[in-house]
Design a protein around this nucleic acid. Structure first.
Lengths: 125, 125
DNA sequence: ATTTGTAGTTACTCGATGGTAACCAGAATA
DNA sequence: TATTCTGGTTACCATCGAGTAACTACAAAT
């Protein structure tokens, strides 16, 4: 899910998009936020994600230094995830995306195409 | 390339990621910036994108209200794109992603795995 | 002795994604 | 007359992404 061509670009912005510019990573980072969370919790909180994809995304986020993984040598296993300094520094960006969408999102009313009748569902969180 | 399930979510943030959370849209928005630009220019400036995908992305950005498309009835045709108010309001977010990456990106040196020898290529733009 | 629980991994499969090349209009140019 | 120019669209095909189900380890509980 990381874009290797983008990550190999000589443009810093393109590399950034290559690492976090997919649909799952912003969602996962936002769900984790400032807390420490276990794999199973993430699996049940993040909507519609499969274990396989979640595992992949978490591994990449760790490799890219946004996430810290702490595995306890217990049985049954326990693994905790939390954002690194780099990951925490990304949270304000997610916040500004939220604010941007709340301000500008316009949803069409069901069955009504005319723009005059469009309403703003932005506050629906 | 838009994620329809995300766009149908009742969470504003998830919907936002559903519309701009892919690899091409941030790149395209960043390339356009504050200027007016023609299709052919975008096709040659945006690295590695195909006409087909570029067309799709531009269409979605227009549908989502980030982009304005102005087609002149000439032959050969001329079409100009520029960001809408909503699109322009997204640019500061892209800027903060750039700054974030410049501050935190760490690239491994080729052939050297030891973290002690990693250097920061962040200023390479 | 069997089930439960966690955090994954693996193999298999199907649908979506994305690239390529060909094609379009119709005026201007050679 | 043939070619060029622009901004696409279409069909075709290979690749990729992602979902599902089964499987792992081992301790504790039933």
């Amino acid at each position: 899910m990381r874009d290797e061509k983008f990550c190999a670009s000589n443009c810093s912005f393109t590399r950034a998009i290559g690492t976090v510019g997919n649909k799952w990573k912003p969602i996962i980072l936002n769900v984790i936020g400032t807390r420490t969370i276990r794999f199973g919790q993430l699996d049940s909180i993040v909507p519609l994600i499969s274990r396989k994809v979640l595992t992949e995304q978490l591994k990449e986020l760790e490799e890219d230094g946004l996430l810290e993984r702490l595995a306890y040598k217990e049985l049954p296993p326990r693994v905790e995830y939390k954002l690194s300094e780099k990951g925490l520094a990304f949270l304000p960006i997610l916040e500004s995306i939220k604010e941007w969408n709340i301000k500008y999102e316009v949803a069409p009313m069901p069955g009504e195409a005319d723009k005059k009748f469009r309403i703003n569902y932005a506050r629906t969180v």
